[in-house]
Amino acid sequence: MNNFMQTLRTLRWDDHRFYHHSTINQSLHFISAITFCVSYALLFVNPAAAAILAWTVSMTTRQAGHFFFEPRGYDDVNQVSDDYKEEVKAGYNIRRKIVLMAIWVAIPAALWFAPSLGGLIQPHTDVRGFLHDVGIAWLSQGAAGLAVRVIQLCITRNVTEGLAWGFKIITDPVMDIVLYHKAPLKLMRGQMISSVASPTMPTAAH
């Protein structure tokens, strides 16, 4: 258990210090985290709606922060290159995220032009049915994306890191609220880059 918790802390610290320098990115993560928490609650009531909210609001704001606002050059704070950060990232780096988001975009198109997906599902007959199918498909994509990466990490690194990363992803919304709730105020003050130091994180990484 101690090894699991230390691995979890290290993963969170590396994610914070390497990939969240921009206060715009941090602010978008704060918005994303709140929306994800709402989606978690909605999951027990309407899974399809929860997935639609998570993907259209939470994921788009979160990934927009990484794609458009996070600095991609040499990291002077951590003294590492962007290529290094992309290579060592435990989760989805930019290349993997592009694939993930491409699948996300393709799913509604596939369901629109092939409502039964070749006989795999009951075809929708109206817009409400279409949205339900899209939501369930997106929910399945999210679960599959999480499971596949956990398995990959268990095989290519170790089981502890794979499981710790999976737990980190599930609990990221809560941690992001804790870490980035002050980011919008910093942004309004004109602070575009924020210190990566945080009292809730360890001060050393692997």
Results as ranks from 00 to 15, higher is better:
residue 110 A to L: 15
residue 156 T to P: 13
residue 164 A to W: 03
residue 194 S to K: 03
residue 20 H to Q: 10
residue 48 A to N: 05
residue 110 A to T: 06
residue 11 L to I: 15
residue 124 H to G: 08
residue 45 V to M: 08
residue 85 K to N: 11
residue 130 F to V: 10
residue 118 G to V: 05
residue 64 A to K: 03
residue 27 S to R: 04
residue 12 R to Q: 07
residue 57 V to T: 10
residue 62 R to K: 03
residue 181 H to D: 02
residue 163 L to W: 14
residue 169 I to V: 10
residue 56 T to W: 05
residue 166 G to K: 03
residue 123 P to C: 03
residue 73 G to C: 06
residue 23 T to E: 02
residue 89 K to P: 05
residue 188 M to K: 10
residue 103 I to R: 01
residue 162 G to P: 07
residue 144 A to G: 12
residue 75 D to N: 12
residue 191 Q to D: 15
residue 201 M to I: 14
residue 42 L to Y: 11
residue 41 A to R: 07
residue 12 R to H: 01
residue 93 N to I: 11
residue 151 I to E: 08
residue 26 Q to M: 06
residue 21 H to A: 08
residue 109 A to N: 09
residue 127 V to K: 02
residue 128 R to A: 14
residue 20 H to M: 00
residue 116 S to F: 05
residue 67 F to W: 04
residue 188 M to Q: 08
residue 107 I to R: 09
residue 71 P to D: 02
residue 199 P to M: 13
residue 171 T to L: 12
residue 70 E to T: 03
residue 14 D to K: 15
residue 92 Y to P: 00
residue 30 F to G: 04
residue 17 R to P: 00
residue 69 F to D: 00
residue 6 Q to H: 15
residue 178 V to Q: 10
residue 53 L to M: 15
residue 57 V to K: 02
residue 176 D to G: 01
residue 72 R to L: 01
residue 126 D to R: 11
residue 197 A to Q: 04
residue 4 F to D: 15
residue 47 P to N: 05
residue 98 I to H: 05
residue 137 A to G: 11
residue 94 I to H: 15
residue 65 G to D: 01
residue 171 T to N: 01
residue 28 L to H: 01
residue 95 R to Q: 09
residue 97 K to D: 06
residue 65 G to M: 00
residue 66 H to F: 04
residue 136 I to D: 01
residue 181 H to E: 06
residue 129 G to P: 08
residue 130 F to M: 02
residue 165 W to E: 07
residue 186 K to H: 11
residue 48 A to D: 11
residue 37 C to F: 06
residue 96 R to K: 10
residue 51 A to C: 09
residue 80 V to Q: 04
residue 161 E to V: 09
residue 159 V to K: 13
residue 198 S to H: 03
residue 170 I to W: 07
residue 11 L to G: 04
residue 173 P to Y: 14
residue 43 L to F: 06
residue 63 Q to A: 08
residue 170 I to S: 01
residue 187 L to E: 03
residue 41 A to F: 07
residue 37 C to L: 13
residue 73 G to R: 06
residue 183 A to E: 06
residue 66 H to V: 01
residue 32 S to G: 14
residue 98 I to E: 01
residue 17 R to T: 15
residue 183 A to P: 04
residue 132 H to G: 06
residue 15 D to H: 02
residue 123 P to K: 07
residue 16 H to C: 07
residue 85 K to W: 00
residue 155 I to W: 09
residue 100 L to W: 14
residue 200 T to H: 10
residue 206 H to F: 13
residue 84 Y to K: 00
residue 186 K to W: 14
residue 203 T to F: 10
residue 110 A to W: 09
residue 47 P to L: 03
residue 97 K to H: 04
residue 161 E to G: 05
residue 69 F to M: 00
residue 42 L to T: 12
residue 101 M to Y: 08
residue 135 G to S: 15
residue 173 P to L: 11
residue 135 G to N: 12
residue 81 S to H: 07
residue 101 M to G: 03
residue 77 V to Q: 01
residue 159 V to D: 09
residue 47 P to A: 11
residue 182 K to G: 00
residue 160 T to W: 07
residue 108 P to L: 14
residue 189 R to V: 11
residue 69 F to K: 00
